[in-house]
Amino acid sequence: MKIAVLSGKGGTGKTLVSVNLASAAEESVYLDCDVEEPNGHLFFKPENLWEEEISVKIPAVHEKQCSGCRVCVDLCKFNALAYIKNRLVVFDEVCHSCGGCILLCPEKAMNEKEKIIGKIQKGVSGQVTVYTGMMNTGEASGVPIIKKLLNDSRKAKGITAFIDCPPGSACTVMESIRDADYCILIAEPTLFGVHNLNMVYELVKLFRKPYGVVLNKCQEGENPAERFCEEKGIRILGRIPFDNELGALNSNAKIAVRESEKYRTVFLSLLETVKKEVRHEAAVNP
C-alpha cells in the first residue's frame, strides 16, 4: 500500500503528517520525494546509511564530426545548444536530458555522457525504512531522482509506504503520486490554503486517485478549507490542532508520535481512518 501526502504549497504539514503516520505504523517505508529540500531525514535521523548517486544523460559533442547543420540547436526547446564561430556549445545545466539532439544528429557527432544531479539515501529509524531523494542545487528537474527512489522502494513489498511529495502540482508531484494507492491532501485553514488545496484536488481527480483531506493548524472559528471540502463533498480524514506542544516538538525535529502519547493517539487514529479508506477503495474500485 502506497500513500502519498500532498499539498499545493510548502509549509502546510506534508512532512509532519507523513513522518508521523510512518512512525505510527508498525513497520513502514518513508519516501521523501521533496528532492529540492528534503527534510524528513531531519526528524528520522536514519542510521546505517547507504547512498547512491543519480545521474542523467546529457550530450557530449565530437567537434570534428559536427558539420554545423544546427538540427540540434533548432530542436532544443530549452535552448541548451548554441552554434558560435563554427563551434557547438552545450549548456549542461539548461539541458533537460531528452536525448533528442543525439538521436537526430545526421553526423552522429554527439553521444551521451553522464551528469550527476543528486543522490538517494537509504537508512533505518526504528521500524521505519527511510528513503530520501536529494537533488543538487540548480538542476533542472528532480523527476529522475524520484523515479529511482520509488523504484528502489518497490523491493519492500507488503509494507505500507508513505510518500512525502514536493509542494505544488508540477511534474515532480505527478511522478511522486503515479503509483500511489491513496492521496492525502493537507490543507491550511485560510483562503490561500483553499486555493492551494484546490490545485492538488484537481490533480488527484485528473489522476483518478482516491483521496481525502487532513485539515492542519485547526483553530476555533471559521475554516475555509473545511467549507471547501463540504461544498465539494471531499472526505475529511482528520483534524490536527494549531497547538504549541506540537509546534515545539516539530521545530525541535522531534517526531510527535514518538514523544507524546496524545499525538500517538491522534496519528494512530488518522492511520486507521486512512487504511479503512484504502481498503474501501480497493473493494469498490478493484
Partner: peptide, 18 residues
C-alpha cells in the same frame, strides 16, 4: 523569436544576434 521560449531565452536571443 526567443521571447516565448520555455527556457534558455538568453542563449537563443544571443544566437540570433550572432
Amino acid at each position: 523569436s526567443a521571447a516565448s521560449s520555455q527556457g534558455g531565452a538568453g542563449i537563443k536571443a544571443a544566437q540570433f544576434l550572432v
